[in-house]
């Protein structure tokens, strides 16, 4: 189990990379998360998460074409690896199991 541990933010990054399939690079991932989650993501936080995930072998990256837009700097595109896929699934499974294990009355709380 421990093998596939993902942090909350790491999981979001992984999923977003999946969502953006083929077009996942720094800025696009950042924007996607900001749009969907409504929270601000700093380049620093994102880049260090990407670095960690790549080190763990959940993501792979390749260098894209250089355009004039970015001061001539290339983009770095990310894809989910097979291991990464396992990690997301494992995390999701674990969460579902936990959810299912909650006894009914515990969730039967009236709000307000």
């Amino acid at each position: 189990m421990g093998k596939f541990q993902l942090g909350e933010f790491e999981e979001i990054v992984m999923l977003t990379v999946g969502v953006l399939f083929g077009n996942a690079y720094g800025v696009s991932i950042k924007k996607e998360i900001e749009e969907r989650q409504g929270r601000n993501v700093s380049v620093g936080a994102l880049q260090s998460a990407l670095k960690r995930l790549e080190d763990k072998g959940y993501l792979t990256s390749y260098e894209g074409e250089s355009t004039s837009e970015r001061g001539g700097r290339p983009k770095r595109y990310f894809n989910i690896t097979a291991q990464g896929k396992n990690a997301i699934e494992e995390t999701r499974k674990m969460r579902n199991q936990l959810y299912d294990a909650i006894p009914k009355p515990a969730l039967d709380v009236k709000i307000g």
């Binding site: 690079y25 720094g26 800025v27 950042k30 380049v43 880049q47 670095k51 260098e63 837009e69 970015r70 001061g71 700097r73 290339p74 983009k75 770095r76």
Partner: peptide
């Protein structure tokens, strides 16, 4: 190894 991509991202956001 990360510099050029990060710089690229920052410049893109800046522009």
């Amino acid at each position: 190894d990360l510099l050029k991509y990060i710089e690229g991202d920052l410049i893109e956001l800046f522009e």
